[in-house]
């Protein structure tokens, strides 16, 4: 009884979370152009999606922005996290505080503050300003992913490498870097995701003529969303779903395979 109630509760929350997603997937196959009516099954939005230049441009901008901002943020953030690990307390306090500001502050305030900066330096609002904004809110995610890994590294191993004649750079890349690599990768993917999904900060940092998927959807909401958007979001969701399943399960399968082989060795079945 208790177990059934628990399962029912989990299911209800899942229904709440997935109801809009199912709606969007269903709408992507809806032949009628309005959201209110079901006009029969169709795949035509998937076909016209790739011919819709505006949507394709927004997709290209979004992906390029996410990739570049995540890459640059990972470089700056990882370097900063490595330095922060062995920093004097007072200087470290500045970096910790400055990392927390964009994380804790409201997105709208971050967006406005950057907009005021770009206005003050008379920058042209466009791809570069949006890129600068995305890098800015991405760096804290990288630092917060790398710093815990950096804390776990063993300093004496690095020193041992130095004693054995390695240069600091060689010792770092051979000894320290492999240990923090999972944090670096996590920071990169986190940044990529945050950039992909951001609307509010982009809204304030962009100029007319440039659109990411989010800002495009926002303007379309008022004029009526084109059904291609549903098709695109369904495709993107499926891509991410498949990627995550692959990333999570392939190592497991590999591990299980190794485990099986090892036990076979132990049992003397394979020679």
């Amino acid at each position: 009884m208790k177990a059934t109630l628990k399962k029912l509760y989990v299911l209800l929350i899942l229904l709440l979370l997935y109801a809009p997603i199912i709606t969007l997937v269903v709408l992507s196959f809806n032949a009628s152009k309005t959201r209110a009516k079901w006009g029969g099954f169709t795949m035509k939005w998937y076909a016209s999606l790739f011919r819709n230049e505006q949507v394709m441009n927004a997709l290209y901008t979004t992906l390029l922005l996410a990739l570049l901002s995540a890459l640059i943020a990972t470089l700056i953030g990882t370097a900063a996290a490595i330095a922060m690990n062995s920093m004097q307390a007072k200087i470290k306090m500045y970096f910790t505080a400055v990392t927390n500001i964009p994380m804790l502050n409201a997105d709208i305030v971050t967006g406005i503050s950057l907009m005021l900066l770009f206005l003050a330096i008379d920058a042209t609002f466009g791809f570069p300003t949006v890129l600068l904004a995305h890098i800015t809110f991405n760096i804290p995610y990288v630092i917060l992913s790398v710093l815990p890994k950096m804390k776990q590294t063993n300093r004496s191993v690095y020193e041992a490498a130095l004693d054995l004649g390695a240069t600091p750079a060689y010792a770092f890349f051979k000894v320290v870097f492999p240990d923090i690599l999972p944090g670096v990768i996590a920071g990169f993917f986190l940044s990529f995701t945050m950039s992909l999904d951001d609307f509010i900060i982009t809204h304030f940092a962009k100029g007319p003529g440039l659109d990411t998927l989010s800002t495009k959807i926002y303007t379309e909401v008022k004029k009526g969303i084109k059904p291609e958007m549903y098709a695109l979001s369904t495709l993107m969701f499926l891509t991410v779903l498949i990627l995550i399943i692959l990333v999570n399960y392939i190592p497991n399968i590999q591990k299980e395979k190794n485990l099986k082989e090892n036990t076979r060795y132990e049992k003397g079945m394979v020679h």
Binding site: L17, I21, T23, L24, A36, D197, F199, M236, I244, N248
Partner: peptide, 26 residues
């Protein structure tokens, strides 16, 4: 993982979907 997955669909579209769900004839 199942509870975080919905966050991978664009947040504006997910909010828009609630319009469809909540409308008078939704």
């Amino acid at each position: 993982f199942v509870f975080i997955l919905p966050m991978w669909m664009n947040f504006l579209l997910r909010t828009l979907a609630w319009q469809t769900l909540l409308e008078k004839n939704g």
